[in-house]
């Protein structure tokens, strides 16, 4: 498959730029009095390494760009995006709604998205959320957000 710009090279450019940014930040860190090495030394090494390897990946991706590869499934699927959005919304809402409510709604959404039916979703979700909630709250003393049911 011929691409105008290979994916690996694109990723390599991202890594190279990221490495350069890390390097730039790390070099700005100050050495503390009485130390010949500062907190910026190790990050500089990592940043430089990442920049070099990023360039290497860009070149490598370019060299092998004509090699055919097993076509993977498309990267951006509505399902993957849906999972991310559902997780993000749940994370935002949980401190206000509490784990029980937010977790139940989230669970219903995920079951439906994954091709489940309404009935199992409605039965399963509250039970799963409550089970996990009480297991962690009383069993492991993890203070999950109580929210509106607190």
């Amino acid at each position: 498959m011929r691409q105008s710009f290979p994916m690996d090279s694109a990723l390599g450019v991202v890594f190279a730029l990221g490495g350069a940014a890390i390097l730039q930040q790390a070099l700005a860190m100050q050495t503390l009095p009485g130390m010949n090495v500062g907190p910026g030394l190790f990050p500089s090494i990592v940043g430089a390494g990442m920049a070099i390897m990023g360039v290497a990946l860009t070149i490598q991706g370019w060299i092998v760009r004509d090699t055919p590869e097993d076509e993977a499934q498309p990267l951006v699927t509505w399902f993957a995006v849906g999972i991310v959005v559902a997780l993000a919304v749940t994370t935002l809402a949980m401190p206000y709604l509490g784990f029980l409510v937010a977790g139940t709604i989230f669970s219903v959404v995920i079951v439906l998205m994954s091709g489940g039916k309404w009935l199992p979703a409605i039965i399963f979700s509250p039970i799963a959320s409550a089970g996990i909630y009480y297991l962690f709250m009383s069993g492991f003393r993890v203070p999950l957000p109580r929210g509106i049911l607190g």
């Binding site: 977790g103 669970s107 439906l112 962690f136 492991f140």
Partner: peptide, 27 residues
């Protein structure tokens, strides 16, 4: 069923990440 398993896995993921520092930051 896969649909229910997905929900259960993700719920555990949320709680497990939360419990590290007891904050939504982990999630």
């Amino acid at each position: 069923p896969r649909a229910l398993l997905n929900a259960a896995i993700l719920l555990f993921c949320i709680v497990g990440s939360y419990s590290i520092n007891n904050s939504m930051f982990g999630v």
